[in-house]
C-alpha cells in the first residue's frame, strides 16, 4: 500500500467515524431537529429486529423514506406523542468500512443504547447493528441509507426517539 492510498484510506475512515459520532451526539444531545440533515434528501432510515431481518421479512417498526418522513417523526415526538421523558446514551463500536466505490461507501457498526428515564432508571434499551450506505453531499458524508437491526424482538414500552 502506498502512502497516498493509506492516507486516503485513513481520511475515509475518519470521515465515516465523524459521521457516526455526529449521529449519536445529535440524538444523545436531543438536537433531533438536526437528525434528518445527517441523511440525504431521499435518505432511508429503518429500524427492524434481527428476527425480521434474518427471516427476510420486510417490516420495520420505523420506516422513513426521505427527510420529510424523518422530520414528521421528530415533530410528532415534540408536539403530539405522549411518553415519559427520557434520554439515550449511544455506545458505538466496531465501525467497519465494507466497501467504497463510485463515491458510495458501505459501512457497518455495533451499538448499544442506554436509556435513562426522568425518574432516574438507566437501563439497556437496545443493542444491535447498523448497516449503512453513505455518500458525499454538500462537502460532507451523509447517510443515503441506515438500517438499524435490533438484536431483541422485544421493545420495552415504546420506541419514540430514533436509535
Amino acid at each position: 500500500m502506498t502512502t497516498n492510498t493509506l492516507d486516503a484510506d485513513l481520511a475515509l475512515r475518519l470521515a465515516v467515524e465523524d459521521l457516526y459520532a455526529d449521529y449519536v451526539h445529535t440524538i444523545d444531545d436531543d438536537r433531533l431537529e438536526e437528525w434528518p440533515g445527517l441523511f440525504t434528501e431521499d435518505g432511508i432510515y429503518r429500524v427492524t429486529t434481527r428476527e425480521n431481518h434474518d427471516n427476510g421479512l420486510p417490516l420495520a417498526m420505523v420506516y422513513c423514506d426521505g427527510r420529510g418522513m424523518m422530520a414528521d417523526r421528530i415533530s410528532a415526538l415534540r408536539t403530539a406523542n405522549i411518553y415519559e421523558p427520557h434520554v439515550y446514551c449511544h455506545v458505538l463500536s466496531a465501525v467497519r468500512i465494507l466497501g467504497a466505490s463510485g463515491g458510495v461507501i458501505r459501512a457497518r457498526s455495533n451499538f448499544s443504547v442506554l436509556r435513562t428515564m426522568q425518574e432516574g432508571d438507566t437501563s439497556l434499551f437496545a443493542v444491535g447493528r447498523t448497516f449503512d450506505t453513505l455518500v458525499e453531499e454538500g462537502g460532507r458524508l451523509r447517510f443515503r441509507e441506515r438500517l438499524a437491526v435490533l438484536d431483541s424482538r422485544r421493545v420495552d414500552t415504546l420506541l419514540v426517539i430514533p436509535v
Binding site: T48, T49, E51, N52, L57, P58, L59, A60, M61, R153, R154, V155, D156, T157, L158
Partner: peptide
C-alpha cells in the same frame, strides 16, 4: 410481513 413484540409494564 413481519413481527413486533412490545413489553408493557
Amino acid at each position: 410481513i413481519g413481527y413486533h413484540c412490545q413489553v408493557l409494564p
